[in-house]
Nucleic acid binder design. Structure first.
Length: 545
RNA sequence: GGGCGUGUAGCUCAAUGGCAGAGCAGUGGCCUUUUAAGCCAUUGGUUAGAGGUUCGAGUCCUCUCACGCUCACCA
């Protein structure tokens, strides 16, 4: 780790600046540079020795040029095709394949290895009488699991029936100095794969995701599914006529959600900037600008606690459509997620944490008031202020934090009693006005707004409104939020004057929705923590190792 | 931030307060169709870190670090 840090600072050697007093003289490039890293155990020492041994054999362990005529899978397919066509002996098929050695078996004067590339695995069959003694000696002495190689030869089947390359020529493409965890597998008679010695330490898998990906095909599959999920979202929204846009991540005023921001600073402008906590206010400006429908997929940053469903940076999808309302967004959202499931898993019926979840539209729609009344018997509209509602909650044996506003108490009821029960996809409609500053009121009901949250698998997946487009009402809401949360609360929504100016030019009636993409991926891949679906989840810096 | 738990070889894991071990990987040897190859021999440890109790600590106690679960926080 220290070695890596110093490698980084090497870039500064090229800057022309005086050396610190008494500092070491700059070293000549050459031997010294390669000596920066030192092996941390005997396994690495062995590999470093082999690297030097390759050099002594006049073999470049990291050559510039590579040849590949077939991926591992293409080579095997080509051979199978030739076998099917042939009546007796199939036509010889010459291939050059590349990959990482994932299994090797030196058996006297014969050497078997499985190489793996991005497509799959393929066995190499090396005979001393085919490759010659010097290459065979190189293999025997200097090759390790984890090394990348290039092999040329002819496709064949071994006696055991496995499709292999009978190798004429084998060269090193990249020497691996640190050993990857060794995982052996056995295919059982029923076709399932049994793994031995899996790399399973959760912390190490996250900290060294490259190693996790290199040895665990299941991990690679998760991130392929993630890519397919995001691709399917784009495909769906593009086909619906939405325009994909990109809005600022560095914002002078943050807003659009109740969350604490990360603060950064622009040196030349002498200006503090915030990393965005949502895209909402910028995307709605674009509806003022006469796009009928826009969406953005990108990163949000919230300076808050981490949990199995929270990471400080996470991927969000927000989409806004003019000339519709939250009912339109419900229709669109359930169709979109069903489409994603179909694309990613092949079905709108998925399995998550032991539950079977049917994402086929239409989904259950129930008002927040009815949902809470069903679970707790409490009709919060009968307790229209914080004091009486808290009392009712306490009578029902529920936690009611004393400093909470009425709206926050309702939100608590939702989170504690309703959310965990919503395994099947469910829209919860109509939220208290004072926790929803960007939504239009329900006609004839000043205390509620047209907002829904969508829950699947006991998790909130999304949040949507009939968007408020009355600039004067919006201004009042900003002021109201500021007063509710006050200066001592970090979550106070700052007044965005430019956003109000945009709205005063006229904003069409519209619906908008935000979807937590990471949580959607959790659902698609049946993972119970957000860290499993983030390539490099945020972890605390390590001080002691 | 609180509570509970975990941390032993490169990886996966054992070890009643009493010599720190196994499998895989590695090294040396045998083996020209292996596939969790096999057989023989063998290297590898600051038991996360610091301190304490004890004749003796991987094991018990205190503190620190990291991770996991959970509560709090959290659109």
């Amino acid at each position: 780790m220290i070695a890596h840090a110093s490698t980084r600072s090497r870039g500064h050697c090229f800057e022309r600046r005086p050396l610190p007093q008494g500092g070491p003289a700059p070293t000549q490039r050459g031997e010294q540079d390669f000596a920066m890293w030192t092996p941390s155990n005997n396994l690495e020492q062995e590999r470093l020795d082999k690297l030097n041994s390759l050099r002594r054999r006049q073999i470049d362990p990291y050559p510039n040029r590579v040849v590949r005529t077939h991926t591992t899978v293409e080579a095997a397919r080509a051979f199978e095709a030739a076998e099917r066509q042939a009546t007796s002996e199939p036509e010889p098929i010459s291939v050059t394949v590349t990959g990482r050695i994932v299994r090797q078996n030196l058996k006297g004067k014969v050497y078997f290895a499985h190489i793996e590339d991005g497509a799959g695995r393929l066995q190499l069959f090396v005979r001393i009488d085919k490759v010659g003694e010097s290459t065979y000696e190189m293999i025997r002495q200097d090759l390790d699991l984890g090394d990348f190689v290039q092999a040329s030869g002819t496709m064949m089947r071994t006696r055991a029936g496995e499709i292999s390359v009978l190798v004429d020529e084998l060269t090193v493409l990249a020497k691996a100095l640190s050993p990857l965890p060794v995982i052996k597998e056995r295919v059982r008679e029923d076709g399932t794969v049994e793994r031995y010695g899996a790399f399973s330490d959760v912390e190490e898998r996250y900290r060294q995701r490259y190693a996790d990906l290199a040895v665990n095909p299941d991990t690679r599959a998760v991130f392929r599914a993630r890519a397919r999920t995001i691709n399917a979202l784009r495909q769906f929204l593009d086909a619906e006529g939405f325009l994909e846009v990109e809005t600022p991540i560095l914002q002078p005023i943050y807003g659009g959600a109740a969350a604490r921001p990360f603060i950064t600073h622009h040196n030349q402008l002498h200006q503090d900037l915030y990393l965005r906590i949502s895209f909402e206010l910028y995307l709605k400006r674009l509806l003022v600008g006469m796009y009928d429908a826009v969406y953005e997929i990108g990163r949000d940053f919230r300076n808050e606690g981490v949990s199995f469903k929270h990471n400080p940076e996470f991927t969000q999808l927000e989409y806004y459509q003019a000339y519709t309302d939250y009912y339109g967004m419900m229709d669109l959202t359930e169709r979109m997620i069903a489409f994603v499931a179909e694309q990613v898993t092949g079905s709108t019926i998925i399995h998550y944490e032991g539950n079977t979840i049917d994402l086929t539209p239409p989904w259950t729609r129930i008002t927040l008031r009815d949902a809470i009344r069903e679970r707790t018997g409490i009709d919060y509209t009968e307790h229209p202020d914080a004091q009486t509602l808290a009392a009712a909650m306490q009578r029902a044996g529920l936690a009611a934090p004393p400093k909470y506003t009425w709206g926050k108490l309702v939100d608590t009821l939702l989170g504690d009693t309703v959310e965990p029960t919503l395994i099947q996809p469910t829209f919860i409609l109509d939220y208290p006005r004072d926790i929803s500053p960007f939504a239009k009121s329900v006609p004839g009901d000043a205390s509620h707004v047209e907002r829904f949250e969508v829950f699947i698998g006991g998790m909130e997946m999304g949040n949507a409104f009939t968007e408020l487009n009355d600039p004067l009402d919006q201004e009042a809401r900003f002021v109201e939020m500021g007063r509710l949360y006050g200066a001592e609360e970090d979550e106070a929504t700052p007044v965005d004057e430019d956003y109000l100016r945009a709205m005063r030019y006229g904003m069409p009636p519209c619906g908008g929705c935000g979807i937590g993409v990471d949580r959607l991926v959790m659902l698609m891949t049946d993972k119970s923590t957000i860290r499993e679906v983030l390539l490099f989840p945020h972890l605390r810096e390590r001080n002691d190792r």
